[in-house]
Nucleic acid binder design. Sequence first.
DNA 1: CAAATAGTTTAGCCTTGGCTAACAATGATA
DNA 2: TATCATTGTTAGCCAAGGCTAAACTATTTG
Lengths: 162, 162
Amino acid sequence: MSDHDQSPHLTASSSNSNSGDALPPVGEHARQYETVRNAHETELIEDYVELIGDLIQHRGEARAADIATRMGVSQATVSKMIRRLNELGLVTSKPYRSLFLTEEGQKMAETSRARHDIVLHFLRALGVNDHTARIDAEGMEHHVSNETLSIMQRFIDEQTRR
Amino acid sequence: MSDHDQSPHLTASSSNSNSGDALPPVGEHARQYETVRNAHETELIEDYVELIGDLIQHRGEARAADIATRMGVSQATVSKMIRRLNELGLVTSKPYRSLFLTEEGQKMAETSRARHDIVLHFLRALGVNDHTARIDAEGMEHHVSNETLSIMQRFIDEQTRR
DNA sequence: CAAATAGTTTAGCCTTGGCTAACAATGATA
DNA sequence: TATCATTGTTAGCCAAGGCTAAACTATTTG
Ligand SMILES: [Mn+2]
Ligand SMILES: [Mn+2]
Ligand SMILES: [Mn+2]
Ligand SMILES: [Mn+2]
């Protein structure tokens, strides 16, 4: 277990036992899970596009091999994914050459990057260790509504101007 | 689009452009994505177990049909999932009867419930609307480290005692 | 410029988590 | 008690996202 996994007191923190709360109305409850399922459909795509954008920006080009090592995944997996991104109109690619983002891809990369940054900076502003904040942000970013994002941004601003 | 999706100003918030930051070291970066992939393997399981626990607690029993409507998913999908939970030693079930959690299942339900509650209460304490907070919490909960969870708990406590 | 190395793609396999349609059991009610 | 509505199961389909092994292309180097 890394320091990402120190155990806090997760059981029976009396100050916030939800046991008394009733279950949400069925329809609402179902829509919550549905939102999560939808997020899961797009998150990998977003992470790839965001990473490709970052590689182009910081390295000058995005090569499949780099994506593979960065993502911790086989090259075959990346190759397959690139085909998908292509079909979705997010990247353009010629066989055996490096990748480029389409207009739409660039837009997605920017949006994802901005969202990712807000979540990361928010966690740091909250007091979370940088290393942990990076890990948490990578997963959380896809499940944060725009409403929450705005509030996080406000929190960062307040924290910063001080 | 629901009110969950109001657009804030996501592009070019100068105060937190990460563009200057270099990419993280490769190994670290890969481990971030790996952590997310691992979370995705367990999250559905956790949500099922948590929901089963909630149904037993609030309704007296957990029936497959209720799980299906709550999750917004077909009964066939639930039936298949129950077989998996069984194999994992998280629930016991006799054909055509309602479900019970094993010791291990109960432990997981409690832990998940506690984590879910902290995230939900944290979001509300931050100022997020209850409806949105519920949606966000359902997805975020699986990507929040124990370190962050502790900090969220502290934040709630401070907010509450005031 | 030929060979070796590095990078990319393809084929084929697997698991997960959805679905629909058909069938089976249970339990309520006529 | 026989019937029917509700609930649960099974079979078979699909897409996504992993993998390894093998084939192919590009680039570097002797
Ligand atoms: Mn991510
Ligand atoms: Mn990201
Ligand atoms: Mn939950
Ligand atoms: Mn959840």
